[in-house]
Amino acid sequence: MQVPILKQGQYLIASIQGALGDQDLVQLRDALAEKVGRLRARGVIVDVTVLDVMDSFASRTLRDLAHMTRLRGAETVIVGIQPEVAFAMVQLGLTLEGVDTALDLEEGLAFLDKKMKRSRSRG
């Protein structure tokens, strides 16, 4: 299942629509790393609200995605991790270290806005 990626202002929003296989996740990671450059995005939001399982592979791929886009100059925030998914992740030892997360899409957008403002005022 392909993940649609929308551009909104300087952000890219990828909303996962259903269960993803490993290849789908890898494809999403690579597509976002490429689109950040082509569409000159400064921020990326990956909405995982519908994911009912986040296992080690999914966690690792999302973490790689966040680090890859950061190296390309865009900040990524993962939004919508469900409470029982978060519980299972912690039990597995998957903490998404070094990756920004937010409650939902709205909070994710607010988070990126704040980050952009900060980097502009520093700039």
Binding site: D22, V53, S56
Partner: peptide
Amino acid sequence: TLIATAISELAR
């Protein structure tokens, strides 16, 4: 969810 996650890891 814990069961589904465990199965995911074992299957992988």
